[in-house]
Simulated scan of single mutants.
Amino acid sequence: PVFFFFQSEAEGRSVTGALNFDPAPDAQTLYKAMKGLGTDEQAIIDVLTKRSNMQRQQIAKSFKGQFGKDLIESLKSELSGNFERLIVALMYSPFKYDAKELYDAMKGVGTSEGVIIEILASRTKAQIKEIIKAYKEEYGSDLEEDIKSETSGYFEQILVCLLQGERDNATLYVDTTLALQDAETLYAAGEKIQGTDEMQFITILCTRSATHLLKVFEEYQKLAGKSIEDSIKSETRGSLEDAMLAIVKCTRNVHCYFAERLYHALKGAGTHDGTLIRVIVSRSEVDLNLIKAEFKRIAGKSLSSMILILNLVKAHYSF
């Protein structure tokens, strides 16, 4: 359902929006596409995937003004499956979309830890602040309290620390003495002792800037004779391990992190369509082209070609 994001891949563009934009005719096109029997899905694709998020918000406003209907609700009533999921995702503003994904990850039976980790580990301080605000406005609930109620132990603590957004206090200056001290603290908290002092890892990973952490990882490698990733893998398990590794990967190269998320969503048994949709929609106006370049390096083939092959297989076997 996400292949049409790549129709202009040869030009290397992600979603940039339409020039000479007027929301009124777009709203009329969408109304006609959903009026009467059947739905003109191609018309919906042609409009919504070629507009920026800000333009889609204006289309929704025009749709409500002209026809007295909520565009998202109209789309939901006409569409189904992953196509509905994608088109509805396009209609949310970025912060409301992240808030929705977090809410959906926690509601019902079980919690989708991977979704929460992905969003909180990859967003900036300013973005997290807006997500918390949007979550409160949309669901009348406190995001931190909901996360606390759905998680526990060190995993809960690392998510709550990420919510504070301290990691994004970026500066070009790095205190090399403090970086070495942090590396020694991490080494002493893991490889050097029986067991692991998880809170030391959580505190340093969640409160230091990316530039500082890169120096810490460099010094840690010298001390431990192994990467911080390898130590995390040997010292922790489960969702806590996933969260720590996500922070490290986002610190080293956030584009590579998302490329890996997409690669793992596409390979192996089953396909995680939710991850595909969320990553592509949320990064389409941010850094999708850079993610696509990293994906090709990792997978040896383009993201669009893998998605196209997957869609053909699904259509053939009626998945």
Rank of each mutant, 00 (worst) to 15 (best):
233 K>G: 09
188 A>I: 08
247 I>G: 03
165 G>L: 04
181 Q>G: 08
266 L>V: 08
39 T>W: 04
60 A>M: 06
248 V>D: 10
29 T>K: 09
310 L>W: 09
170 A>K: 15
32 K>F: 07
294 E>F: 09
126 A>Q: 13
298 I>K: 13
201 F>E: 08
131 I>T: 09
64 K>Y: 07
318 S>E: 13
252 R>F: 05
128 I>V: 05
227 S>L: 11
246 A>W: 10
236 T>Y: 00
37 L>P: 07
189 A>Q: 12
166 E>V: 09
273 D>S: 10
28 Q>G: 03
108 G>R: 04
300 G>I: 06
312 L>E: 15
284 S>I: 04
159 L>Y: 06
88 V>K: 01
158 I>F: 02
42 Q>H: 12
205 L>Q: 11
32 K>A: 14
128 I>A: 02
279 V>N: 05
291 I>P: 06
134 A>L: 02
197 D>E: 13
121 A>D: 07
259 A>T: 06
56 R>K: 07
263 Y>H: 13
111 T>F: 01
200 Q>E: 12
210 A>K: 13
32 K>C: 07
269 A>Q: 11
121 A>V: 10
2 V>W: 00
256 C>P: 03
55 Q>R: 00
110 G>M: 00
245 L>W: 06
171 T>V: 11
53 N>V: 00
158 I>L: 06
112 S>L: 11
108 G>E: 03
319 F>V: 15
79 L>Q: 11
174 V>Y: 03
310 L>I: 07
202 I>W: 10
61 K>A: 14
102 L>G: 03
177 T>Y: 11
258 F>L: 01
197 D>S: 11
11 E>H: 12
254 V>C: 08
145 E>W: 08
223 L>G: 02
86 L>H: 03
259 A>R: 02
286 V>F: 04
180 L>Y: 12
155 F>P: 00
188 A>C: 11
248 V>G: 10
129 K>P: 08
164 Q>K: 12
269 A>P: 10
314 K>S: 12
5 F>P: 00
127 Q>R: 09
219 E>Y: 13
252 R>W: 02
246 A>C: 09
17 G>T: 00
268 G>T: 00
88 V>A: 04
135 Y>V: 02
106 M>Y: 02
224 A>N: 04
10 A>E: 12
210 A>G: 11
37 L>Q: 10
256 C>M: 09
139 Y>L: 04
96 K>G: 05
289 N>H: 14
256 C>N: 13
309 I>Y: 12
211 T>R: 15
290 L>A: 14
219 E>G: 01
15 V>C: 00
